[in-house]
Each structure stands twice: as structure tokens, then as C-alpha cells.
Amino acid sequence: MASSGLELLLVSLPQLAQGAAQTLSISALGIAFSTLGGVLYGVLATLGKRSVNLVLRVYLELFRAIPVLVWLYLLFFGLPIFFAVSIPSFWCAVLVLSLWGASEVGEVVRGALHSLPRGQREAGLSIGLDGWQLYGHVLLPQALKRMTPPTINIYTRIIKTSSLAVLIGVVDVIKVGQQIIERTYESVLIYGALFLFFFFICYPLSAASRALERRWTHA
């Protein structure tokens, strides 16, 4: 039994690896776009422009109020119906995770920028910095410490949430696992492998987040 279980795992490995590659690439792209979008959101939200803030607020609330799964269905099944545009399921998952992640990261970035003393902005402006220089050299570097730990936590949520992509037909690591279980009935073994897979990706991230938080809040 043990040896046959191990054998099964070895035989299934290439297939599982393919699924894992899907999970990891959706997550990695989602994380990358969430970060870029989140920084953009945070910067826009601290410009003090009322109309911009209103737009960001609506965007944020839409992603807070509506579950990610509903967004996936909406874009994957809704766009073809209403706009005759269809997105491949992989990219649909990346898009939804990115938009959702960017709203979460964006709020973190906004909060971190907001927590800086107002005088930092004024001192930067007073030596003639333009907006890019002000954010790039003065504000964002100083916000980095405060925003990194919670942002890493959002990354782990993005990785875990990526598994919803199964529901629009992405064959990710979980889907592959289910297919193997359907064939072999080795659910304990496969789910154990999936457990370890997610644990070994997400645990180091959340440990790093906690370590950074400890280091930086007591520095």
C-alpha cells in the first residue's frame, strides 16, 4: 500500500506538476499585477483629488462586496454574452485576481502613505521635486516598511484564492488532484500532497511577513 501510494505519486508527478505550474503562474501574474495596480491605486488615492478618490472608492467597494467567484463567473460567462468578448479561462482568472488583489494592496499602500508625516510631502515639494520624484524617492520608500508585511499576507490570499479558477475550467493543481482521485480513489494521499504544496508555498510567505513586521515595528 505504502509503496503503491508512493508509486502513484511518482507516476502522477508530471501531471500534478503541470497543474502546479498553472496554479503558480496564475498566482504569480496575479501577485505582480496586484502589486503594480496596488501601488498605482495607493498613489492616486493620496493625491487629494476628490473625483479620483470617488472612483477608487467605488472600485474598492465593488471588490469588497462581490465575491471573487462571482467576478470570475461575471467576466468568464458574462462578457461573451453581453459584449461578445471572450477571455480564455486562464487570463480571466489572472484578471480577476489582479483586480481584486490590486484593491487590497492598494488600500494597504494608501494607508502606509497616509501614515507618513505630512511634512515629508511638503519638504519634498519645497526642494522642487515633481510628483514622480516625490513618490519615487521620498514617499514610497518610506511607506515600504509599513506596507510590506500586510502585502505579503495578501499574496498568500491570492495564491489560495487562485484555486477558484477551477470553477471556470482552469486545470490547476487541485483539478489535477481531483482527476487522479477519480481514477485511483487515493484521496488521502493526493489531498495530503495538495496540503503540503499550498503549505510550503504560503507558510514561508506568512512567516516572512511576521518576521518583517516584528523587525520593523520594533526598529
Binding site: 515629508q120 511638503e122 515639494l125 519645497s126 521635486l129 521620498v138
Partner: peptide, 20 residues
């Protein structure tokens, strides 16, 4: 104003040096 600010230096009550 960026041009003007180069000609008009300003010093504040709480210094506001860039901490990083």
C-alpha cells in the same frame, strides 16, 4: 512652481528630513 521652489527655500518647524 517647481522652478519657483528652487529659488525659494523653505525650512519648517519640524525639520522634515527624509528619514530613509
Amino acid at each position: 512652481w517647481r522652478q519657483v521652489r528652487q529659488q525659494v527655500g523653505m525650512v519648517f518647524q519640524s525639520y522634515h528630513l527624509f528619514g530613509h
